[in-house]
Amino acid sequence: MPEILDQARTQVLENGVGLDEAGVLAVLNLPDEDVPAALQLAHEVRMRWCGPEVEVEGIVSLKTGGCPEDCHFCSQSGLFTSPVRSVWLDIPSLVEAAKQTAATGATEFCIVAAVRGPDARLMKQMREGVAAIKAEVDIQVAASLGMLSKEQVDELVEMGVHRYNHNLETCRSYFPNVVTTHSWEERWETLRMVRESGMEVCCGGILGLGETVEQRAEFAAQLAELDPHEVPLNFLNPRPGTPLGDRPVVEGKDALRAIAAFRLAMPRTILRYAGGREITLGDLGTRDGLLGGINAVIVGNYLTTLGRPATDDLALLDDLKMPVKALSATL
C-alpha cells in the first residue's frame, strides 16, 4: 500500500480531514497499479462521510450561446467560430424540462444561462420560470447565471433558488490561460456572496484544459478551501471552433485518479459527474468512478451536448445498490 493511501486511511477515512495539496498530488501521481486501491479508499470515504445515496440532477440551458466571455473550452462563447447559435428557452419548455428531470427521480434541476452575469431580462425570465416550476413540479431549483451582484444574489434567494453553481473551472495559476475576459478572483467573489446568502455553493471545474498534474492538485486544494456543498467534475469534451477544440481528451485512468484524489481532498462534498464522462470514461469507467468517490450524477442531456439516457444511469445505480437521494432527504 503506497504511503499516501495509508496516511489517507487515517486522516480522511477515520478523521474526516481532507488531503492537502501535496497529498492530492501524491494520489494523482500514483502508478496505474495503485489506482484501484485509491478508488477503493475514496469509495470508503464517500460511504463513511456521505452515505450510499446518489444525488441525481438534470440541467437545462435557459439562454444558449452568444456569451461575451472567452472561456477557451466553451462552445457558447460568441467570440469563437463555434456553430452554436444564440437561443432562449420559453417558460413552458422550461417547465417541461423540469418535469422530464423530475420523472427520472432527480431532486435537483439547474437552470443555466450563457452570460457574464444576468441582466434584467434574464432575472425576469428566472423569476417567472422558477415560479412556474415551483407551482407545477416537485423538485429543487438551482441556477448558474455567471457572476452576480449582491442584489442579484438576494433576488435569487427570494425566488427560492436553493443552490448556485459557479465553477472556478481550473486552479488560480492556470486560469489566465483559459479565460482572459474576467478573473478567477471575480469568480471567487461571487462564490463568497452566494455562501454568505445561505444558498448552497456548487463549484467545480473541468479537467483536461492543459493544466499540469501539479495544477490539478492546486485546484483540488483551492476547492477544498472554498468547501462547496457540491463539486461538479467535468472532463474536457473538445468543442469545434474553440481554442481548445484540438486538445486530446483526458485518459480514463487519469480521470479516475482525479476522482479519487478530489474525494480524498473533500470527504464530505457532493462530488458530481458532469460533462465529458461519456467520452473520457465510457460505461465501464463511469461505473469505476461511482465506486471511487463520485456520489452524484447529471442525468440526461447537457447544455449543448447529449448525455446517455437517464435510464442507463438509473439502471447502473440500481445495479450498484446505490439509492437515489429522495427529495424528503434534501429538505
Partner: peptide, 19 residues
C-alpha cells in the same frame, strides 16, 4: 445534436433539453 441544416448548410437554432 445537429448544428447545420443538411439541406442548405445554414446554422440552426438548437435547443437541447434533458430529454
Amino acid at each position: 445534436p445537429p448544428r447545420f441544416c443538411a439541406r442548405c448548410r445554414r446554422r440552426m437554432k438548437v435547443q437541447v433539453l434533458p430529454v
